[in-house]
């Protein structure tokens, strides 16, 4: 039997909003330690990896490893019935389940809703993501990053990200013209979610499709800050921490200059 009880149902709502537009169906691997999800968009340009450790749950029981093939649109419809402060319980048999139950309990305990969602058979490629030493890490406000991606999308469909010791520059150009947004490494880090820290081993200069970045920033409500990790000729990593019990990590292949 797999059973996981989440005190704050709102977190699961946010996680679904973060993944459902990038990956329609996903394999939720549940083992004794965590629930992990890895999925790619159909063109294999972008990938999302979600990890939620057992300690995020008020109650977590996983007798045998089980993989739940979830249709994220169906799951999202159920979670739209949940309030942020509802308790959400996920339940599934651990011998090749063909369905998963979700129980929503209202905070005052007066309302209980239960749903059964059919699981889907998914045969997607799972990618092995090597641990990588990145040339640059940029930690910044997640709201700021979302704003930059949205604003630059008006000027072009790609953003060039260049990191130097002191700052990170986001540029985009198209028939409207050219736009550059430069963030400077914050000298003092008084409020973490408003400061920008650039940790540079060597300069990077890479170009990425804004369409995917604007899908990644749907995870903005999950964390006040976002960390970008970049290396020349390597996929970009955009990471949102889920408190200290997990993360949502997006990977995006760069555009290759001819």
């Amino acid at each position: 039997m797999f059973e996981a009880k989440l005190q704050q149902g709102g977190l699961l709502k946010k996680i679904l909003e973060s993944v459902k537009d990038l990956v329609v169906d996903g394999l939720w691997d549940c083992d004794g330690a965590a629930i992990t999800l890895q999925g790619m968009d159909s063109s294999h340009v972008a990938l999302v990896e979600m990890l939620l450790r057992a300690e995020a749950f008020e109650h977590y029981r996983c007798d045998r490893n089980v993989t739940l093939g979830m249709n994220h649109n169906h799951l999202s419809k159920i979670l739209k019935c949940a309030n942020n402060d509802d308790i959400v319980i996920l339940k599934a048999a651990d011998q090749n389940p063909d369905s998963c139950s979700l129980i929503l309990e209202s905070k005052n305990g007066e309302k209980t809703s239960d749903f059964v969602v059919s699981l889907v058979r998914i045969d997607t490629d799972q990618l092995g993501i090597p641990e990588t030493e990145y040339s640059a890490h940029v930690k910044m406000s997640s709201g700021e990053f979302q704003r930059i991606c949205r604003d630059l999308s008006q000027f072009g469909d790609a953003v060039q990200i260049t990191c130097s010791k002191q700052d990170v520059k986001f540029s985009s150009s198209g028939e409207t013209g050219k736009a550059n947004i430069t963030l400077t490494h914050s000298a003092t880090v008084d409020k973490e979610e408003e400061s920008v820290t650039v940790d540079l081993k060597e300069p990077v200069d890479l170009t990425f499709a804004l369409r995917f970045l604007n899908l990644f920033t749907k995870a903005t409500p999950i964390s006040d800050t976002v960390t970008l990790s970049l290396s020349q000729e390597a996929p970009l990593v955009v990471e949102y921490k889920i408190g200290d019990s997990g993360h949502i990590r997006y990977f995006l292949a760069p555009k290759i200059q001819e």
Partner: peptide, 14 residues
């Protein structure tokens, strides 16, 4: 012009 890379050329399918 730039062509869009794919993750398969960076990560291995397991």
């Amino acid at each position: 012009g730039a062509t869009q890379g794919r993750l398969d050329s960076f990560f291995t399918v397991v």
